[in-house]
């Protein structure tokens, strides 16, 4: 009997040798419930933060799919992305605010409109879910929206760049010559920072439309706000980015608190890692953004939006390698 136990413990020693091959800097995440590479998370947070600071978008449309891809459960990925969005937009927004390139008044009107749009979006979402066509509607409208916005911006900004090269001088900026269709509406307000005196109505409507689309499609909508403000209201690019970041910040704070209390899926350690990368990346993004000319900025944003659109189009058009997907695993509590 004793001899047998000796033999067994000898065997155990052999097993242990196999176990101790180190696996880099792995960090166990308490809510996501899996270990992930620390540097991968820092790097991804930084890359998305850079894009956020540069374009005035939240970046959730990049970060959330990435987190799901590396194994984070979908609710945790969605909820934790909102923390990263809050952090990278706050650091960018402060910088723009100090450079007087943040229109708080405009942002506040957009947020007010956004609230109305969100409520309408939730009602629409539930109605469509009852009818069972939700996924088709969402996927198709997402792709259509991205491709058309990106395509139009691409054509416009390339045109502007070409015109500029031909003329050799300052091109007609994206605004200033267009007939302001919103000039004659009631409730005119002056937005000093944006150098704009317009009716509050179209801004409210824009906020509502973005809020509606964002809720139905599950996206923040920053990359729709930015082109809309540039093209419809002819606001200077840097003010657009700053104001968009401010609006995104407010949305992300609300989203984090709702996710944290209702779905309880916010992973604080995952958030911390992503945020540290994100705030540094965002600072570099803001800096880079300030050196870009308006049409260069619009071209790059157009390419980004097109790339995201193509990625989602490929997902539904390309034949999937695997027809079955595990979408959720819930432990029984």
């Amino acid at each position: 009997m004793l001899g047998a136990i000796d033999a067994a413990s000898e065997h155990l020693e052999k097993i242990k040798v196999f176990k101790n091959n180190g696996r880099g800097m792995q960090l166990y995440l308490p809510i996501a419930e899996l270990p992930l590479n620390l540097f991968l998370l820092l790097g991804m947070g930084g890359a998305v933060g850079f894009i956020s600071g540069l374009f005035g978008v939240g970046g959730g449309f990049l970060l959330t799919p990435f987190l799901i891809f590396i194994g984070v459960p979908a609710p945790v990925a969605v909820a934790t992305s909102s923390v990263h969005i809050a952090a990278s937009s706050v650091t960018g927004a402060i910088t723009y605010w100090r450079r007087q390139a943040l229109d708080i008044k405009l942002g506040a009107v957009l947020i007010a409109g956004g609230l109305l749009g969100t409520v309408a979006g939730v009602l629409f979402f539930n109605q469509m879910r009852r009818l069972g066509h939700l996924e088709v509607v969402i996927t198709l409208s997402y792709v259509t929206l991205l491709m058309s916005v990106g395509g139009l911006m691409f054509v416009e900004s390339v045109g502007a760049l070409v015109a500029k090269r031909r003329a050799g001088g300052t091109p007609a900026p994206a605004g200033h010559h267009a007939p302001p269709w919103h000039r004659n509406l009631p409730w005119q307000i002056t937005f000093h920072r944006s150098k704009l005196k317009i009716s509050v109505l179209p801004v409210l409507v824009l906020g509502a439309v973005i809020g509606f689309i964002g809720t139905v499609l599950g996206i923040g909508g920053g990359f729709l706000v930015v082109p809309a403000l540039i093209y419809f209201f002819r606001i200077p690019t840097s003010v657009v980015v700053g104001t968009s970041l401010f609006q995104i910040l407010m949305t992300a704070i609300a989203a984090t608190i709702l996710h944290g209390t209702i779905s309880q899926a916010v992973d604080i350690l995952l958030a911390l890692t992503l945020v540290i990368g994100g705030v540094i990346g965002a600072q570099f993004g803001v800096r880079t953004g300030q050196t870009l000319k308006g049409e260069q900025f619009r071209l790059l944003l157009a390419l980004l939006i097109l790339a995201v659109g193509i990625r989602f189009a490929y997902e539904i058009v390309g034949e999937p390698r695997e027809l079955f997907v595990i979408t959720a695993t819930e432990p029984e509590r």
Binding site: A87, V275, V279, I280
Partner: peptide, 30 residues
């Protein structure tokens, strides 16, 4: 264990702490 427990038993404080941490780090980076 502590964090997982806090996320379930004190979701309000937990969410608030997370968001304050994010804003603070954003401010520090600035």
């Amino acid at each position: 264990g502590l964090l997982a427990n806090a996320a379930r038993s004190q979701p309000g404080y937990y969410a608030l702490t997370t968001i304050l941490m994010a804003i603070l780090l954003g401010w520090i980076a600035n």
